[in-house]
Amino acid sequence: MTETAVASEAAAATDHGHAHQSSGHDTSTGISNNKLMMWVFLGSECLLFGALISTYMLYKERLPDGELGPSDVFDIPFTSLSSFVLLLSSLTMVLALSAISRGDYRNFRIWTLTTATLGAIFIAGQIYEFTVFYEEGLGYTTNIFGSSFYTLTGFHGVHVSFGIIMLLAIYIMHRQGRLNQDKAETVEIVGLYWHFVDIVWILIFTVVYLFPQPESVL
């Protein structure tokens, strides 16, 4: 919920940002307040996801014998596809920023919507994955693997969903003429958040899905 407030602030920046302030030349460091806010927030997010990933890694190894574990449910080819989708969305995000910075609004709209769509595909894939896992017998309450896996990937999914909302918000603001080349920084800030979420997925994909799975220890 914290990111809601922060992002809402970023969205408000779009709305009200004065052209001459977007480059932040009025601050004592020469850095824009909004961008610094997002970076400081992302620094904090590192410890949030760190705690979740650590919890998952710890619990993966503490899973009692005979319980449904990672190697029983994971579908690596499918998740790889999702990972490519999210990776691609990072590219389209940066292309959207590049487009609006040079005033190419047509491409900005295309790439923004593409990014949001790719994000939505990722989320759809995650819902599908959760459904399959559930049908295979892994519920949220089934065991510590289920609890920690769904919590970690669920937190990430909520972050992606929130990113999609922000992308749609900047798209709508642009359609209303309230977000143009001079406010490209707002797109950049949303982009920072989006890339961060992608980075977290890079970690989760490797640590959760690809690392060799334990043959049920303990």
Partner: peptide, 10 residues
């Protein structure tokens, strides 16, 4: 400064 804040977190 962005690098420092982010790397500090990591």
């Amino acid at each position: 400064m962005f690098r420092r804040v982010f790397i500090a977190g990591i």
